[in-house]
Write a protein that binds this DNA or RNA. Structure first.
Lengths: 338, 338
DNA sequence: GGCTGGCACTCGTACGCACCGAGTGCCAGA
DNA sequence: TCTGGCACTCGGTGCGTACGAGTGCCAGCC
């Protein structure tokens, strides 16, 4: 087990390295932190920390930099979550309060998060799986062409065109619409398939085909839209990556363009509480030199989606975690109000 | 006026520079192109071209590189638009044909364009101003809460919540819905305000307030949504910028994040035909070292939106223009079909 | 008059080399 | 267990030199 002082040394190394981007040596450490011991002692501690794999030297006769494992220990045991200052809190609230609809909320959130953390922000749209149905509408656009509109409690709207196998009368349409709504409004998406299963049987045989088509489109929409959309922002912050940024930035930009990758990334985050993935802990190779801080947010107590930031492993973890958590909370509040 | 041969020299310089990213000297030029004259002659021509401002030397005793003015001349007089190969055409068609809805079309288009040109692609969503109304729907979500859904001929769907000043009966709702649709379906958005102006007067006084509210929301939607959305892709291609890319990339990423800037950029493109803006011809400072190739696309003969790419001034103009034009055409076809 | 070969000149880049200094590991002593 | 001292390592920097691509200019040729 590492002694208290050695942990303190590790904390100091992480803090200095994050601040300066330069390998940090024993002398500089004792000067900038009140460790109460001499550089030589620190050197011994460093040797131990290096042996344990928490820090490394880029080359002999250079200072040490934290490894992924070092950051992990720092995050888990040495660093808290830094709360935001109250001006920051007020700024967040003001900025988010101006949003007019869901798109706007998500758009503002991603900009806000990028600005606060000065890193790349990723925000997932509220998921349909845990949402409930607020309304279903069926419109007749042409004799054999319908439009299905689905409205969720998070304010999201999905629409689909449906080509019917046979013309569908206004009366049948109104009937189907009414029955659909009475059955599934207020229900969770996950429960919908069960609730509508026997609906076609209560219609005339000539309409049954159309009703089935409508229902399967509805179910498809639910499934398809479970594949989440997300938006990213603040990519220009990638230029802050550091001196070796030209080689790092390419794979990161590529990874960010693959929505699938990002969704998986966010998906891996635990549902409640904040998840921090550091360097090689990220499955995707392009993100091996980045850390991802993600957290769920939602209108109630349950998370309906996730948001987070992607930045260099050398990031200010307490500050970033504080900003991510605060933004998630406020977004949750906004969603609950609307 | 520049002689034929001098133009030929300029063309050769542009082509070589685009290929190698290195300043090109007189000897290399004569070796790689059949100019039929000696390096010394080429040097004289180069001196003239430099005096006229078409090329420049990064420093004495280095080769020449084209200036913005040089590229301009190249694009205007020396280069055609390179048609795509037929495998490429087929690939485009196959890729776009798989799209299921408007979002998908736009998403595929931006990916396709980024891949073909290996540059940053920008695609604007079809504009509402020139679209026509396919259907308007009004749903009653609660006694005094309506939802307005607007469907355009380009497949775009907009929805808005409306809080009514007074409860609105089902009958009135159906009446309003029917009248609205009979008046404006098939009309251009620009004509809608005129067509609905006197609608409230034909309703009972108790409903008149709600009808007015609905109409003003409708008109607002038309105006608001004229502010266009767009999506970008292929940002990782920015890493292809060249050796000085770390300094260039930052302002470009920032400019790309400002949708306003991009929209203005596309807006400046002429409505028909392709627009090429080279280097400092771009008003936005961050894009002074980039060129923008943009073109309108649409379902009919008229452009409903624009698309294009952003890349280094040192780009393959004929190839890029060819790809942009081809993609715009195919997207137009897809939109016309749906 | 325009093109060409020759020639001196420029200047950025690569290379070798010495020096500096931050940082280390180790050890003897408190 | 901590500390001060000491020799050592090695990357970064600055300087001088050599190299070579590329130029501009000029005299001569077609």
């Amino acid at each position: 087990m590492l002694s208290e002082r050695r942990l303190e040394v590790l904390r100091a190394i992480v803090q200095d390295y994050v601040g300066t981007e330069e390998p940090v040596g024993s002398k500089a450490l004792t000067e900038r932190h009140q460790l109460g011991v001499s550089p030589a002692t620190v050197r011994n501690d460093m040797a131990v920390l290096e042996e344990e794999g928490f820090i490394a030297q880029p080359h002999t006769s250079a200072g040490r930099i934290p490894t992924d494992k070092g950051y992990r220990l720092f995050v888990d045991r040495l660093a808290g979550v830094k709360p935001l200052s109250s001006p920051e809190r007020r700024a967040i609230q003001n900025f988010l309060d101006g949003a007019v609809d869901l798109d706007d909320v998500v758009g503002r959130t991603v900009r806000l998060l990028a600005q606060l953390t000065r890193q790349v922000a990723v925000v997932q749209y509220p998921s349909l799986t845990r949402s409930t149905v607020r309304h279903v509408e069926l419109l007749s656009l042409a004799p054999a062409r319908l439009m299905l509109v689905l409205i969720t409690d998070t304010g999201r709207v999905e629409q689909r065109m449906i080509d019917c196998p046979a013309p569908f009368g206004e009366a049948s349409l109104a009937d189907l619409r009414a029955r659909l709504n009475s059955r599934i409004v207020g229900c969770r998406f996950a429960d919908v398939p069960r609730l509508v299963r026997e609906l076609p049987e209560s219609f005339d045989s000539e309409d049954r085909g159309t009703v089935s088509t409508v229902l399967s489109t509805l179910l498809e929409t639910l499934v398809e839209e479970t594949e989440e959309r997300l938006i990213i922002g603040g990519t220009s912050n990638l230029t802050r990556f550091g001196h070796d940024f030209p080689v790092m930035i390419r794979p990161v930009l590529e990874a960010l363009e693959e929505q699938v990758v990002l969704l998986k990334l966010l998906g891996e985050a635990t549902d409640s509480g904040m998840t921090v993935r550091i360097g090689h802990e990220n499955a995707h190779e392009g993100l091996n030199s980045t850390s991802v801080v993600a957290v769920g947010y939602g209108s109630g107590d349950e998370a309906v989606a996730k948001l987070g930031v992607v930045g260099p492993t050398r990031m200010d973890y307490p500050g970033t975690m504080g900003a991510v958590r605060a933004v998630a909370r406020y977004v949750g509040q906004i969603l609950a109000e609307s």
